[in-house]
């Protein structure tokens, strides 16, 4: 104990002594002064005022979006103990933001509850509705077969003045055979034309015959792989329908081909 503490303790002891004398004294003397008026009753602190919850702000930015875009909800609430937003957002803090991705126009309700009551506010996020898509194109089975053929068949290429099926043409026609079997199975009325083409160098007359021979060589190969021969026709275009019109070997090779197209 420090010196000052000791001093302080002795003052308390002296005060307690005076008080004790004063209290005990009336009992010791008949002539006692009237007691002082009671102190005013300590005004009991009024029960604390319970304020009503208040949503100070609740907004969506932007308030209008395109489908798939987001909007940000932001809010600020006072005096609430229990705050939530509907549409599966759930409990929130008194101040916050939340990104939402409504698929269609949605009204969000923010509810704030507290001992003093409750408050609600709503905000609406508008989603622009796109025009309806056009009705699906009427796709008959024949069209889809023709499309399949056009998109998936491969040309078979030939050497100059030749109609032999090269190994690359063998691969292409083998894939074509699988495709044709699939198409013929799903579409009993579908038939196919094998076009034979030539490059520009031979004579037109000879190329007519050569294109014919290429087309029938390609057809024979498909038939050997089990494609129905009675559903394949051939046509020679000679050099009348070139794929490519430049005068070089790359281009000529593109033109020396057998090509599949839809029959009728």
């Amino acid at each position: 104990m420090s010196a000052s503490d000791r001093l302080h303790a002795s003052k308390i002891a002296a005060t307690l002594l005076v008080l004790t004398i004063a209290v005990v004294a009336p009992g010791c003397s008949k002539k006692v002064p009237p007691p002082p008026p009671p102190p005013p009753p300590t005004t009991a602190a009024p029960p604390p005022t319970v304020a009503k919850p208040s949503i100070d702000s609740f907004a969506a930015e932007p308030s209008t979006i395109e489908p798939g875009q987001s909007s940000t909800l932001s809010w600020s609430i006072s005096n609430a103990t229990d705050m939530s937003i509907d549409h599966a957002i759930g409990a929130v803090q008194s101040r916050g933001q939340r990104q939402v991705f409504p698929a269609s126009t949605t009204t969000y309700t923010l509810t704030a509850n507290g001992p003093g009551g409750s408050d609600t506010r709503t905000v609406t996020v508008s989603v622009n509705t796109p025009p309806p898509p056009p009705p699906p194109a009427p796709t008959g089975p024949r069209l889809s077969s023709a499309e399949m053929l056009q998109q998936q068949s491969q040309d078979a290429y030939f050497d100059y003045d030749k109609s032999d099926i090269r190994s690359d043409a063998r691969d292409a026609l083998t894939r074509d055979a699988g495709l044709l079997k699939q198409i013929f199975a799903q579409d009993p009325n579908f038939s196919v034309v094998v076009e034979g083409h030539c490059d520009e160098r031979g004579s037109a007359e000879y190329n007519l015959a050569l294109g014919d021979k290429r087309a029938s060589a390609a057809k024979d190969f498909l038939v050997q792989l089990g494609v129905a021969g009675d559903r394949i026709k051939t046509i020679s275009y000679g050099k009348e329908r070139p794929q490519c019109t430049e005068a070089n070997e790359e281009c000529w090779q593109k033109n020396r081909r057998a090509h599949l197209s839809a029959g009728q």
Partner: peptide
């Protein structure tokens, strides 16, 4: 002369040439 007669168009098929 030689000519490729045209086949008329039908649903799903444009008009195309038939055998010469």
């Amino acid at each position: 002369f030689m000519n490729y007669p045209m086949r008329a168009a039908s649903p799903g098929h444009p008009a195309t040439e038939s055998q010469p």
